[in-house]
Design a protein around this nucleic acid. Structure first.
Lengths: 398, 398
DNA sequence: GGCTTATGTTCTACGGCAGAACAAAACCCG
DNA sequence: CGGGTTTTGTTCTGCCGTAGAACATAAGCC
């Protein structure tokens, strides 16, 4: 049950807790549930489940679908679905794009816009103003009955969750920026996006297919291949945030202390071997080469491309082994640039992990590719905003 | 509120949850609380708090102390303390010792026995039989009114929490052992100790001073310096277990891929530089040299000892930097053998961390020493057993 | 010794759930 | 086609555990 930390539970806590459980139960289901189904799955009576469902339906968090003739005797069930008129806005700034995306409580993309550009070294105020314009245009096309419950912003850097400050985004060249403050004036309806780390938010899209709907994997390490490498660790479907919210910097695990210097101040960081710029430089290719082209060249036997991938695989094997040993999470999902290269990287990385991970004998580490999705961080930002509804639906019931 | 995952809350859940909250509140307090204090701290009414306290007192989980004249007007308060007649048994097998320790709900050591020996390569059945005898003798001397609610066993290796199998303990030379099954026949009263990793359990003694009483640090990395190096990550007072319970293997983070082979199958593992055997070998000292002697020799300027510590510090700096980047936990507590060397290791390790940790500018990583405590794992094992009482006191109320 | 203050106890009312009974809406079968 | 069966949804009553008020107790203060 959800209480304020250290505060006793009371009847209202019971209600809140059970409303949340009912909403989660319906959202998690692969098929629509009935009130009787909800009662069965939550262990409550049909009377209680019905009462709670009625409240959620009245508040728009659940919808009732059309009853269909059942394939069996008995009264037909009223199907329940997550509210289709509840949505959230996800935004993203990356080195090479701006994105805005609206998702509803069923996980559907209601509207989206992705705009390419070069934002490395850009002025934060100008870039965020531009993103605001993108989002405003997008929202103008969204049906009026869609109720936006929140917004989020994915950024490629360290975000202080406590006060919303982007402390440092090396790939953008930004430091100590308050992105929500810069952006909010350019958004309609008083939206104030919550900033978050891009890799954390992208990882969420692997952990959840739709709000409250678990993905295939609940425990995994996510590597987001961008200019550098972002990362996130996910356990039981939850992104690990660490004590200040800055966890997951897998790209800055040192794989060779005598290796090249990194912009972070360290040496031999994983992203110096397996980041997009590192890979393309090692392969002797232009920095804007698509990952599919690098993969094709390596597959075709070009020595430069092959060696670059070999070096990257070696670094990934060494760096990730330590992480798997420390976190006990043997599934690695490669996203962004690295996702397209997963098949080429997998044999050597898995071999190194099998050798270097203490528990490999009992649970073999695996490398997988994330489903290709442009601006996955924007989707993750919207999912996180929607997660607030699932966590405490009472706040959205009037 | 504590429900079975996915099960709705009901009146009984309210009661269980509030009983647990009241017990936790009293256990966490630095000074005894009254019923009125408990009401104030939990947000409930004095009537409700009194009713819940009465139940816990009746069940022995709380004790009422002697009322003392108050320093102010008003009716004197009845002080409440954690139940002094509730205890748990903690056991430990290490390469060089066996330990048994009984703690009560106030965190007091009621009885203890530590026996030195050499258990490397020992027969598990014989060693555990010996530990059983040690524990049985200890329990014979414990007051009859102490009610043991459980027992735990700390082991230096990978433990499968799901089925209680010690998969591998390299320092003992044990593999695929069911320690509770071997031990239980030699313990009185049907005790069936839950096995756990030594570093995880030792870390718990830093996170908790007594059952439910937080230690000074809530978020830290714990390194347990034994023959090798065990480790644990603690966040918000909770030891991170990972997806199978095998997290925390900080000793097997690779700090140099070209480094010496490790027994784990990898190369260049941290424990090959900073483990006790690695340190003493590098210093040219016998393997049973106490840490105080190594520290003294290094402090006295012996080049071998100094270089060994220098090398260890370098490895710790590189290896821990990656872990801090991934977990976002910048406080490192050194225990076991490493605790005694913390002062000598600190300058260089902190310098390396300051340079290599991404967020060091905002939160400077620090190296601290754990309070010296022989067989800290045994204490941690008892604390964990007692934690089950705090988590769900209803189970212990008849 | 009366007043004031704080704690502890008793009593009543309320919220939210369980469980039973009833109603509705289907399919099945003779 | 109508009665029987089955399943879902609705209504009603009772119970559990809390809040809140009132009262009782146990002190110190003046």
């Amino acid at each position: 049950m959800r209480t304020t930390e250290g505060t006793g539970a009371r009847q209202s806590t019971l209600r809140s807790s059970n409303l949340a459980l009912v909403l989660r139960t319906v959202c998690a289901a692969a098929q629509p549930l009935s009130r009787a189904d909800v009662a069965g799955r939550t262990g409550s009576t049909r009377a209680t489940a019905a009462r709670l469902v009625d409240e959620l339906v009245a508040g728009g968090l659940l919808d009732e679908g059309e009853r269909v003739a059942p394939p069996r005797r008995g009264r037909p069930a009223t199907p329940l679905l997550p509210g289709g008129r509840i949505g959230a806005l996800g935004l993203q700034v990356d080195a090479g794009l701006l994105a805005a995306r609206v998702l509803d409580l069923r996980g559907r993309v209601v509207a989206e816009s992705v705009e390419d550009g070069d934002f490395v070294g850009s002025d934060p105020a100008a870039t965020l103003r531009r993103l605001g314009a993108l989002a405003t245009e997008l929202l103008a096309g969204v049906p009026g009955q869609l109720r936006l419950v929140g917004a989020g912003l994915a950024l490629p850097g360290i975000v202080s969750v406590a006060d919303g400050v982007l402390l440092r985004a090396p790939n953008l060249g930004w430091s100590d920026v308050r992105p929500a403050d810069l952006l909010a004036p350019h958004l309609p309806g008083g939206l104030h996006p919550t900033p978050g780390n891009e890799a954390d938010l992208a990882a969420r899209t692997v952990a959840e297919i739709a709000p409250g709907r678990p993905g295939e994997r609940r425990d995994f390490l996510y590597l987001s291949g961008q200019i550098g490498i972002g990362g996130a660790a996910v356990l039981a479907g939850q992104v690990m945030t660490g004590s200040a919210g800055w966890a997951g910097e897998l790209g800055h695990v040192c794989v060779d202390p005598g290796g090249p210097p990194c912009r972070c101040g360290s040496t031999g960081c994983l992203e110096q071997y397996a980041g997009r710029h590192a890979l393309l430089t090692a392969a002797g290719l232009p920095l804007d080469t698509p990952s599919a082209e690098l993969a094709a060249r390596a597959a075709a036997g070009e020595p430069g491309a092959g060696r670059a991938l070999e070096t990257a695989a070696g670094a990934l094997g060494v760096g990730l082994a330590g992480v798997v040993n420390v976190l006990d999470i043997p599934t690695v999902v490669l996203g962004g640039y690295l996702g397209a290269l997963a098949d080429l990287l997998r044999p050597e990385v898995e071999a190194l992990l099998a050798r270097r991970v203490l528990s490999a004998r009992w649970r073999r580490p695996t490398i997988e590719a994330a489903t290709a999705a442009p601006a996955a961080g924007a989707t993750g930002a919207a999912l996180r905003a929607l997660a607030d509804v699932l966590a405490d639906p009472v706040r959205w019931l009037h």
